[in-house]
Structure formats: C-alpha cells, structure tokens
Design a binder for these strands. Structure first.
Lengths: 222, 222
DNA sequence: CCCGGTTCTTGACAGCTGTCAAGACGTCTC
DNA sequence: GAGACGTCTTGACAGCTGTCAAGAACCGGG
C-alpha cells in the first residue's frame, strides 16, 4: 500500500532521503556487491525493517539513491564556469575542481562507477544510470561551451566525445588515487590541461599525414 | 595441502584453466556481484565442491581468472600494427578492431570493467588489476608508437594519457552498445579517428587563445 | 586382483541475504 | 482518556552463500 499521509506530506520524503544518505555512505564504503540492507540500516539510526516501509524493494532504494546522488553533482563546476574570465582560468579552475572532488569524494565516485558498471548487467538500473550519464555529459559540456566562448574558438568535439574522453582520464586518476599512486592527481591536472584545447580543434581530415594540421570547414567524418 | 602430483604435472593446470574458463563465462554473464561458486561449477562439467580442490579461495579463483583473461587480449591489435603500411590504414584497422571486439566480446569487457571497479573496494584485487591495466596500456601504446612512426610525428601524449582517453570512449561505447543505443559503435570509430592525431600533437602552451596553435619545443606543462 | 593416490561428488555447516508479518511505540483527534 | 493512525522494531521465514569434511569413483602399478 502506498501509505496515505495526512499532515506531514514531506516527512515521508525526508525519511527516504535520510535512508538514501545512509545507503550512499554504505555503498560508497563497501560497493554494490557487498552492501546489504541490514548494513545500510545499521549505518542509519533505524532498524533493518524500516527499509521496506519506505521502499518496496532493494533495487528501488538503490535507484532512488542514484537519482538522489545526481542532485549533488550537477552543478559541481558551475561556479568555476561563472567565475572564470579567461580560458586559462577556466582550465585551471576546472582541473583543480576535478582533483579536489577525487580527493574529497572518492567513495562517491567509485560508487558511481560501480553502479554504472552494474547497469551493464542489471537492466533495471539502466534507465537511472543513462539519465545521470546524460546529466554528467551536459555538465561537462557546459564547461566546454564556456571554454569555447572564452577562447573564441567553436567546439570541435561532440558532447558525448568530450564526456567520454574526460571521464576516461578521470576514472584512471580515481583508480590511481585509490591505489595509492602518488602522482595520480597531478597527472590528471596535466592531462586536462593538454586535452582541453583538443576539444575545440576542428576534426582533422583522413588522418594527419603532415605536421601542419588541415582545417576543414565542416567535419568530413560524422 | 598443495597436492603433490606425480606424472601429470600439467593436468592440474589444465583443470584450473578449464575452471577459469567456466568462471569467466559465468562472470561475464552475471557480473561479480551475482556470481557464485555453485553457478560457476554448474556452467562447467564438475560439481561445486571441486572448486576448493583446485583453488583455496573464491578470491584466488577470481584473481586467477583475471590473469588468465589477460593472456587473451595482450596481442589483440598486434596484427593490425604489423599489417598496416600507412597511418590511415592503421587508424582504420584499429578503429575497426575496437568495434569488432565490443560486438564480439562484450561480456568479457564488461567483466573487466566490473573487476577493475571492484578493485577500488577490494584491496586484494588491486595487484592483479594494476598489472593488467599496465598490460593494456602497453598494448595501446604499441599502437600509438606505430602510428607515430607511420606519420613521421613523435608521440605527444604519455602512454597513460593515451590509454586513459581511449579507454574512456571505449567504455562509453560498450555501455551504449549494451544499452542498445544504435550509433554507439559507429560513434566510437569516429571518435577514434578524431582522437588519434591528438595523441601525436605536442602539448599546447598555456591554453590556446587563438586559432593557430603554438608549437612549443618542449612541453611547459608536465 | 588389489591397493595407494589422485580426483571428484555428496552432504552438511554456519552465516548472511531480502522479505515480510505481527506487534509495539508514539502522537494526534475526537 | 480512548481510539486510530502513522511510524518503527522485532523476530522469523526460506533461500542462497563460501567452506569443508567424509567418502565414492577412478586409475595407475604391484
């Protein structure tokens, strides 16, 4: 039964969020595979039975968590975007923020990668994951668009490509950081500095054969 | 007890590989979280008890699987490297091979990403994962080095950066492919075609302010 | 044929899992 | 104060998990 509440219409949602936060803490610590509902409840101030009062299912809780998690990160770089007045400043601020979020919120990030990978196996996770992935892509694209404006050069990559490339080096840095590799975060900043200009470059013709890159008016590939 | 074998010194290893193959099949299908030893045994011609005869532990089996899996993919692109005579040919062959391996071996790839993500939580997986990651990086670097030779342009990225970038778009394509997105594989090929030239470009100076890229003799960043 | 060792199966164990029902607690209304 | 309702706890269930011990089946050489 959906439980009809009278006065406290949002007390219900508040509890759901409270549980979601405990769940995210636990999932970030243990990962999807090793997290049980009892462990989540133990990390909250409630007992294990309460989960089924607020969520039908373990999967509904997890999906709710993923969506709840999204709300935190959509605007992570928007301040950098707004405050930067030059392209250099934007790149440096962006790189610094990427590094910062890895060292501050590593458990959340590894959880995101865990859940995204789980969605490759569990079809019921795909909808929520696809939605967040889209949101993250847009978040990155706002950075690229602003970078393009400040540089006076139109963007040369698609939003998907920009996100894929940045996500790759981000994930690598996260893994390196968690594995204890010393230079992981500094390398990420360097790689971002080198990558950003490429996101503006127009697509090269059929493989650059010579040093001086050709400039095609419109991408021949795509 | 390590079990002392007399005549068939490699019969033992043969069985281990046989079990590893069943395990990889199962893991590729269900993922790390949902795979049990009984399921692995059910996908082989043995019963569930035999696993503990050949492996001390579930984790030892998984780690053995990961290492066993590595042997298959180290030389995946070496034929393309050897047979290509121009830079274009190499790029096209490489892109085609990337696309092919996604559509042919998607379960194996999602398993790899699953296990690599698990290593962010489970420290006992890290050693094996780090080793394979290194191997994959070298595999990619061989492609880049050959591409550099054929183009007559020295490589401009580090091996780690090249691997991180390619891995990002590869993973994105895999996810898209498994989610049923139609253009996922074609997009990957396009993105690879656009990315490869960037792997040769020298590092840009402090953020490209104008259209004509500066060429610095040695990278100022790094 | 029989016996020692390797290989494999069977059955059992303790522990954990998601789920849910029964009921206790607290709070608000009449 | 009594009853009702929203909230939460407790305890139990069936099922699955990794692990392991006991023994069956198999295969070689004596």
């Amino acid at each position: 039964m959906p439980v009809v509440r009278q006065a406290p219409a949002d007390k219900y949602d508040e509890r759901r969020n409270q549980l979601a936060e405990s769940a995210l803490r636990t999932l970030g610590e243990l990962g999807y595979a090793r997290t049980s509902l009892r462990e989540i409840a133990a990390n909250s101030e409630f007992s294990h039975g309460v989960v089924h009062y607020y969520f039908d299912d373990k999967l509904e809780l997890i999906v709710y968590c993923v969506r709840y998690y999204k709300a935190r990160c959509v605007s992570r770089y928007d301040e950098v975007i707004a405050s930067s007045t030059t392209a250099d400043e934007l790149v440096e601020g962006f790189a610094a923020k990427l590094v910062e979020t890895i060292s501050d919120e590593a458990p959340m990030h590894r959880l995101w990668y865990d859940l995204r990978t789980q969605s490759m196996f569990e079809a019921s996770l795909r909808e929520a994951v696809t939605m967040i992935d889209k949101t993250l892509e847009e978040m990155i694209w706002r950075v690229v668009r602003r970078y393009s404006e400040l540089s006076g050069v139109p963007a040369g990559r698609t939003p998907a490509a920009a996100y894929g490339l940045l996500d790759g080096i981000f994930q690598q840095a996260l893994l390196g950081h968690l594995t204890g590799r010393a230079g992981a975060l500094a390398d990420l900043a360097d790689q971002v500095r080198e990558l950003m200009p490429f996101l503006l470059e127009p697509a090269a013709g059929p493989a650059a054969q010579d040093q001086t890159r050709m400039r095609l008016p419109s991408g021949s590939a795509r």
